[in-house]
Simulated assay, not measured.
Amino acid sequence: MMTLNSHSLQHFTPSDTQMSLYRAYLDLWIKVGPNKIRVSHLCHKAPAARSTFYIYYETIDDLKDELENYILALLVDKNQKAFEKEITSSKDIVFVASTLAFVKEHEKVFQAFVLSEPNLMFIEKWKSACQRHFQLLLKNDNKEFLDFQLEVLSAAVVSAITYFLKHPDSQIDEQTINQLVFKLLD
């Protein structure tokens, strides 16, 4: 199982077959729901031989876990630079724009795992990735309060981006989200 950091990303590049299985999995997640996905349907849609599926994965859950980790490792890597400088105003928050661009680039993943049929494990991993980044910015000697701050902040970011996805024609824009995040950081 891959952990969520940019170092593991350097060592993992899915094969073309794995990418086909990822796409087929996401399509099936949206069309039939996660509980009805079977290896035979997945292999037919990919297309890939059933034996090929089992070369890479023991179960469908293994594929889902790898896909979640792969996408979030890409997001963590993309946003790494956004957390290297101090945030003194809402204009300094560049990770929102970076994250929104990433979400648009990987729209099918977020459509499946966040909008269509929410994948709570994916959302928790996403929040955890946000928390690791925000921990670099927040300084608090009270660990319990710091954990609380990180949970609220990461939930707010994920919720704001989810709102943005659900309402693409909304008047809410990146700057509005940045202002909200800045208030929470302050």
Rank of each mutant, 00 (worst) to 15 (best):
I71M: 14
K81Y: 08
S90P: 08
T99Q: 11
E84W: 01
I55R: 00
D77S: 15
F83G: 08
A73Y: 03
I93M: 06
S116P: 01
Y57E: 09
A112D: 02
F102L: 07
E66F: 01
S89H: 02
L67P: 03
E117L: 01
V114E: 02
S90V: 05
S51Y: 00
V96E: 07
I60R: 08
Y57I: 03
L72P: 12
F102W: 05
K78L: 14
I87C: 03
H106R: 06
I71Y: 12
K85V: 09
V96L: 13
D61A: 15
P118K: 00
T59K: 13
I71C: 13
N119G: 01
Q111N: 12
S98Q: 14
N79I: 14
F102H: 10
I93H: 08
L74N: 15
L67T: 08
Q80H: 11
Y56M: 02
F110D: 05
K85G: 07
E66H: 08
H106C: 06
L74A: 05
I55M: 00
L67M: 11
Q80I: 08
Y70D: 10
S116T: 11
S51E: 06
S89I: 01
N119E: 02
K81A: 15
I71P: 09
A82C: 15
F95H: 13
A101H: 08
N119S: 04
E84I: 05
V109W: 02
A73R: 12
V96M: 10
E107N: 10
V76Y: 13
E107V: 03
F83A: 09
K91N: 13
Y70Q: 08
K64C: 12
T88Y: 04
S51T: 14
I60K: 11
V109I: 09
I87T: 06
V94A: 05
Y70N: 11
N119V: 00
Y70C: 04
K85T: 15
L72N: 10
Q111I: 07
F83P: 10
Y54Q: 00
A82S: 15
I93D: 09
I60T: 13
D65S: 14
T59W: 01
D61G: 14
L100A: 10
S90D: 12
L75G: 15
A73H: 04
V109K: 02
A97Q: 12
K78M: 10
I93P: 11
S90W: 04
E86V: 11
F102G: 10
F95K: 04
